[in-house]
Design a binder for these strands. Structure first.
Lengths: 117, 117
DNA sequence: CAGGATCCGTTCTGATACTG
DNA sequence: CAGTATCAGAACGGATCCTG
């Protein structure tokens, strides 16, 4: 219908935008983080780790991360089925920065709690 | 209606989630980045820097960033009005990570272009 | 200049039920 | 176990017009 190409004209710094699109989803950060903490997780484990995400969103988010080559999906064709998720190398590259973000978040949360008291 | 407290049970790492909520908006990363690059920007300057954002979204996003104490809004009560935005200290703390993210994004974009050729 | 207010379509999320 | 399918409501985003 309409052009969507003008999100960022030509040269400028849309890599910021680019990156945020890839990890900015509602659950992406957490999924990446949990995969980092556990190295390898099955679908059900992820689901239990994040009880607030529905199967639909979890699947959808995992597929997006996979499409962006941040995680790897390994299917075992057996009964019952088994699927394992791991970070790709590209995904690993994001960990230090998520760590930074997490530390920042921790700090802010502490601050807020101090104020609340 | 329903409890929203269970986003992250008790102890765990929801700081990741916390942080993403604060900077994960569609334009937040870019706004922070531009404020970092220019130190101080007026409303109209931001608007011109990001032609793809409407006044509504720009205002809304700026207010959110302000509420989260990532940017500071300084109003000059004169005619015509003048409003300046700057990063707060807390906002500054996010710059290294946005820088990291940007670098990562640049790298990925390059990779994709190589493949496309 | 720097927005505020409305209207409205699209996208995103969630609840629920079902399947190989 | 690891999803898929469907539907509906909520949130998001944009266009347009208005104001101190």
């Amino acid at each position: 219908m309409k052009k969507k190409e003008k999100t960022c004209p030509e040269e400028t710094t849309c890599s910021v935008d680019y990156a945020f699109k890839r990890i900015g989803g509602k659950y992406k950060g957490r999924i990446l983080w949990y995969l980092h903490e556990h190295s390898i997780l099955r679908y059900g484990e992820l689901s239990r780790t994040m009880p607030d995400i529905t199967t639909k969103m979890l699947t959808q988010t995992l597929r997006e991360l996979e499409a962006d080559n941040l995680i790897q999906r390994k299917v075992y064709h057996e009964v019952p089925p088994k699927v394992e998720y791991t970070l790709t190398e590209v995904g690993q590259e994001l960990i230090p920065f998520i760590q930074y973000l997490k530390d920042w978040g921790d700090k802010q949360i502490e601050k807020e709690q101090v104020k609340t008291i």
